[in-house]
Design a protein around this nucleic acid. Structure first.
Lengths: 219, 219
DNA sequence: AAACGACTTGAACGCCGTTCAGTCCGTGCT
DNA sequence: AGCACGGACTGAACGGCGTTCAAGTCGTTT
C-alpha cells in the first residue's frame, strides 16, 4: 500500500496532474475554435502524451467536456456571487436581479465559446452526472434570494420554479443576442433589452402576486 | 434550348426531385436520431442514389441542414399564424402573446429534434443566407402585431427590438425547459411557467410605458 | 538477478464527409 | 442510321476523426 505516501510523484498524482493539464488544453482549444475543434490528437500533442493516455483519465471526450463544463460553471458562479459587500443592493431585489442578468451577459461575452460549450454539448443518451446538476442548482439559488424578497408570499417551491424560468428567459436573450445566425444585436442595445426584460418581468411578477401595483418607479 | 420544355423528365426536374427526396430523408433522419445522426451514406441509401449525387444538389451537408431548417421555419410559421378567425383574440394583446408562446412550446414539443436542429447547427464561418434571415424576421413580425396594440406609444424600431427580445426569452424557457440536461420540468409545470412569464412581461411592459397600472387583472 | 504487474504507448480499426477519375447515356449533328 | 460529344452519375479512395488494445516499458517485489 504505497498510496499513503503524499509524495508528488505518486501514480495517482501523475494521473491527476495529467487530468488537469488535459482540461486546460481542452479549455484552450474550445476558446480558440469552439467545441467542435476539440480533437483527441491535438490534446495529446498539446500536453505531450499519447492519445491513449487521454482515455486513462476520461471515459471519452464527452466525459472530458463535462469536466470542462464543471470548471466553466464554477467560474460563472464566482463571477455572479461576490457583490454582497454594499448592503444597498439588498434593498431593491429588482436591482440585484438586474445585476445578475447583466453579470451573466458579461460572462457569456467574455468567455463566449466556453460558455456556449455548456449548452451545445449533447450527451448521447447517457445520464447527466449528479454533481453537474448540483452545480446548476447553485446558480438558481443565486436567483432565488432576491426573488424571495420580491415575492415573500410565494411558496418556496413556486419560487424555485420561477428562478429556473427567469434564468431560462435571460439565457435565451443572451444566447440569441450573441448569436451570429440572427442578425447580431449591437452591444449596448443588447444590454438595454436584457435590462428592460428583467425589470418588466419583476414589475409584472410583483403585480401578479398581491395587490401591489409595481411600486418601484425607475430612476 | 430544350429547357423551355416543362416535361416532368427534364434534367433540371430530376435534380429538383432528388433535392426534395434528400430533404425528406434528412428530416426523417433528424427526427429519428437528432442532427448528429445525419450521415451522407445513410441519406444516399435511403433515397437510392450514390453519395456523390448529394453534392450535385447541395454544396455540403451544412447546406442541406440549412434547407431542412427552412422547411422547419415554414412549418413553424404555419403553426403560429392561422388563429385569426375569432376576433376576440384581437381585444387582448396579452392573450395573443400567450397563444404565440404556447404555440411555440407545442411546436417544439411536437418536433423537438427538428426544432433543435435549427439552433444546434453552427455554420462554420460561412455567412447566413439572406433568405434564412428573412424567414426568421417573418416570425418576429407575428410578435410585433400584438405588441403594437400593447404598446401603441412605443417607437416602431423599439418594438421590433422588443419582439426579438421577447422571442428570445420564450425560446430560452422552452429550450431549457425541454432540455434533459437540466432536471426536466413536468409538462404542465412548463406550460404554466411559460404563461406566467409572458403575462408578467406583458404587465411589466405596460406599466413601464405610460402611467397605466397593468389594468388587465387575471381571471 | 529474475520475474512480475501496472502503466503507457501509438499503430490500427471503423466510421465520417468529401472528392474526382472513370463510366454511362441522352442528345444533336452529319 | 451512325457517330461523336458533353454533362450527369457513380463509388472507390482520401484524409481525418474518436476509440481501442497488443506490445513495450519500467518500478517494485521476491
Amino acid at each position: 500500500m504505497a498510496e499513503a505516501q503524499p509524495s508528488a510523484t505518486g501514480t495517482a498524482a501523475r494521473r491527476a496532474e495529467l487530468r488537469e493539464r488535459l482540461l486546460a488544453a481542452g479549455r484552450a482549444a474550445i476558446e480558440a475554435g469552439g467545441l467542435h475543434s476539440l480533437k483527441a490528437r491535438d490534446l495529446a500533442a498539446a500536453v505531450g502524451c499519447a492519445v491513449g493516455a487521454i482515455y486513462t483519465v476520461f471515459a471519452d471526450l464527452d466525459d472530458m467536456i463535462l469536466g470542462i463544463g464543471a470548471g466553466t460553471l464554477a467560474q460563472l458562479e464566482r463571477a455572479l456571487e461576490p457583490q454582497q459587500a454594499p448592503q444597498q443592493a439588498r434593498e431593491e431585489p429588482v436591482e440585484e436581479l438586474s445585476r445578475l442578468a447583466r453579470g451573466y451577459l458579461d460572462f457569456a461575452r467574455a468567455h463566449e465559446r466556453l460558455w456556449r460549450a455548456l449548452f451545445e454539448h449533447r450527451l448521447g443518451g447517457r445520464a447527466v452526472p449528479a454533481w453537474f446538476l448540483e452545480d446548476q442548482n447553485r446558480l438558481f439559488t443565486l436567483i432565488e434570494a432576491p426573488l424571495a424578497r420580491l415575492l415573500p408570499h410565494e411558496p418556496a417551491a413556486a419560487r424555485a420554479r420561477l428562478a429556473r424560468t427567469l434564468f431560462s428567459a435571460v439565457h435565451g436573450v443572451v444566447s440569441l443576442g450573441l448569436e451570429e445566425k440572427l442578425a447580431p444585436t449591437p452591444a449596448e442595445t443588447l444590454d438595454a433589452e436584457l435590462d428592460r426584460l428583467v425589470r418588466a418581468v419583476s414589475a409584472g411578477l410583483g403585480a401578479q402576486s398581491p395587490g401591489s401595483c409595481a411600486g418601484a418607479s425607475s430612476s
